[in-house]
């Protein structure tokens, strides 16, 4: 007769339950050590490529997930504790292992440029990454557009931006709207309409949800900026008529016969500064803070005839 295992099975189940309990008690007081700023042991893509033994793209995927989690994790931290120093090495590693990983280049273009505390504020690194993309992944118009965009939005170098837009327009598969964008940038760089066109193109051609939502947020911010311009005209009109600034919404709503307290595109009410009477975005709005708008080019004075 075979021995019965019922007792053993019950013991295993009880011990398993005990191990779960011990682990739960231990985790309650244990804060795992995390090196400040995180660690990236191997930063050489070439070395990692050798170690991957033909599974380069899979290792690239793992580092891509790590980069996304790293960036997302830093964004969730307290503003003063955020550090993005590993973002560029991670993305560089990903793109060395898988040179055709288009979204990694474009992700870098968006998130490496974001200023602190939402990103490292390194447009130079974003441009370096995209230029690597052009070397490794061929003459893709998307990378040229993104470089032009960084020069336009972050570096305010409209001449270089126009050069890259024009190059993108000439690249294989380059869309027809890039050449006119280059001309507009050169003529009136910094205007809000051009910014809107570029963010819309990014939104429509995004390879990932993250890039799409980032572009969507920027578009909503531009809408908010348009609305604020109009509201501040109304607030100024009120101040001129009443001889004092509107200190609260009820005063302005009543005085200017508005339909109610205006909401920003995210659905949060705008706020009035009671001292200056200027209307602005609420700090608890998901659209806060608004970007510093690229400065529009001053019209070139006509030469004297």
């Amino acid at each position: 007769m075979k021995p019965r295992n019922r007792g053993l099975i019950v013991a295993v189940m009880l011990l398993f339950a005990a191990s779960v309990g011990i682990q739960a008690v231990r985790d309650r007081d244990r804060v795992p050590f995390e090196p400040p700023g995180g660690m990236l042991w191997i930063q050489s893509g070439t070395a990692m490529k050798r170690m991957a033994l033909g599974f380069d793209t899979l290792v690239a995927d793992l580092y891509w997930i790590r980069a996304v989690v790293y960036y997302g994790g830093q964004r969730l931290r307290d503003r003063s504790e955020r550090s993005y120093e590993l973002l560029y090495p991670m993305l560089d590693l990903v793109t060395t292992l898988d040179p055709r990983f288009k979204v990694a280049y474009r992700f870098g273009a968006i998130f490496l440029t974001e200023g602190y505390p939402d990103g490292p504020g390194r447009p130079d690194q974003a441009i370096a990454l995209l230029e690597n993309g052009l070397r490794r992944d061929g003459e893709r118009w998307e990378y040229m557009h993104d470089i032009g965009f960084i020069y336009y939005w972050w570096l305010r170098d409209y001449t270089k931006a126009a050069e890259w837009f024009e190059r993108g327009g000439r690249a294989p598969g380059g869309p027809p709207w890039l050449a006119p964008l280059a001309a507009t940038t050169l003529a009136q760089g910094g205007d809000r309409q051009s910014s809107r066109t570029m963010w819309r193109q990014l939104f429509e051609n995004a390879d990932s949800d993250w890039i799409r939502s980032s572009a969507e947020r920027r578009l909503l911010q531009l809408d908010a900026m348009d609305a604020l311009d109009q509201l501040n005209v109304i607030a100024a009109r009120y101040a001129a008529r009443e001889g004092r600034v509107a200190q609260s919404w009820p005063a302005l709503v009543q005085g200017e016969r508005l339909r109610g307290i205006p909401l920003d595109p995210a659905g949060v009410p705008y706020v009035i500064n009671p001292v200056t009477g200027r209307v602005g975005l609420a700090e608890d709005s998901p659209l806060w803070p608004l970007p510093e708008e690229p400065q529009a080019l001053r019209p070139v004075p006509e030469p004297p005839s």
Binding site: G54, F55, T57, L58, A60, D61, W64, I65, V68, V69, F101, V103, F107, D207, S208, D209, W210, I211, R212
Partner: peptide, 24 residues
């Protein structure tokens, strides 16, 4: 499940992982 962490790159990662699993 892993692909949920990939910022929209789930199809690429799924294919990479699937082919690598078959090979390994």
């Amino acid at each position: 499940l892993i692909s949920q962490l990939t910022a929209g790159q789930d199809m690429k990662i799924l294919k990479d992982l699937g082919l690598a699993a078959i090979a390994v």
